[in-house]
Design a protein around this nucleic acid. Structure first.
Lengths: 188, 188
DNA sequence: ACAGCCATGTAACTTGTTACATGATTTT
DNA sequence: AAAATCATGTAACAAGTTACATGGCTGT
């Protein structure tokens, strides 16, 4: 959905064609989120199918225009709250939760490996931000900040998990709906 | 992928069948991430196709076992870093970036609407955490913490964006490939 | 008998994604 | 002429998701 709505948003600023849209998109995300050209065409076809854009064969390029319905859809998109939780199950969280009951895997190891990756990510983005400076493109700075904030939150979350694992003050509560009775205890 | 790997992780603790796996999964995510039963069956079929599980027709239920290949795949999954940036383009970031160049939409409004939603999310999860207490299920607490940390990061990111918009110290750099020349100035 | 749950499954669809084919124009 | 770039497109697949069909068993 995000890609479709982004293309729609670009088209709302004026008509455009396939490759041009790809370049616009990547210019705004500065290649952190590369976009395969093929996907632009498939997405445009789906947008046209749904009546959000209309194609107009020009010279060599096939130009697309946004329709009133497309504009309405775009308005709705901008107004909608983007729920972080619902959007998709967080892979890392599932990984860690699942590691808790897995024999042979120490959750602490998982935490440390993921922490290392997150810190490294954070450093990369921080470096990019330093290169961009304070007078860079606003959109690009927003994107970088988001990546940094998210990575930082991730590191802090991993630290909190690690701390909680180190002092298991709880009485090893029996699992709620599970019927696995001889569940293995997490080794410290 | 996350769902498939999670089911595989549950199966690694012992054989199981469809509905049971669904219940196990939901018990561990306490219904924050509900899982349609149908998806369990489609996912199991795909896992079997790929040789990660093997089915064994029992009485009424069809029991599944993890295979050595499945165990290997699981090991790899636990070892892999979960990259936050690559996993998927962040919808909210795209929304905000795209709103920057959109006539008729004030990025500040987008920010405020999203901030409100994020704060509300945070409060919901914080309430849930308070109810869970410090001696609750570890996995459940991990999940809640993650949701809280992510929502908090989101709020702080939105605040940072808002602050940056309010003091446009930069010389309103011309957009790279865009041809929108009369860009509206953000109102303070 | 009927309501309700347990249990399995499938057809259909969405979004994302890539590998590949094709032709036109431009550069070397 | 060969290589590169521009431009469009398609077939195919992965993963997620849901609505619906089907059958068995249990309690009232």
């Amino acid at each position: 959905m995000s890609v479709a709505m982004s293309l729609l948003a670009i088209l709302d600023e004026g008509p455009g064609y396939g490759l041009q849209l790809k370049n616009e998109f990547e210019a705004r995300t500065a290649s952190v989120w590369p976009l395969n050209v093929g996907q632009v065409y498939t997405t445009l076809a789906r947008l046209e199918r749904d009546g959000f854009v209309r194609s107009r064969p020009d010279d060599g390029e096939k130009t697309y225009d946004i329709t009133p319905a497309g504009r309405a859809r775009l308005d709705a998109w901008f107004a909608e709250p983007s729920q972080s939780s619902v959007r998709s199950r967080d892979e890392l969280v599932l990984k860690l939760v699942m590691s808790l009951t897995r024999a042979g895997v120490d959750p602490q190891d998982v935490i440390q490996a993921q922490r290392k990756a997150a810190v490294s990510e954070m450093q990369d983005y921080t470096r990019l931000k330093r290169d961009a400076g304070v007078d860079g493109d606003v959109g690009w700075l927003f994107l970088l900040d988001s990546l940094i904030f998210q990575a930082e939150a991730r590191v802090r979350w991993l630290d909190a998990c690690e701390a909680r694992l180190r002092r298991p003050r709880q009485k090893a509560r029996a699992p709620k709906a599970s019927d696995a009775e001889e569940r293995e205890e997490v080794r410290g």
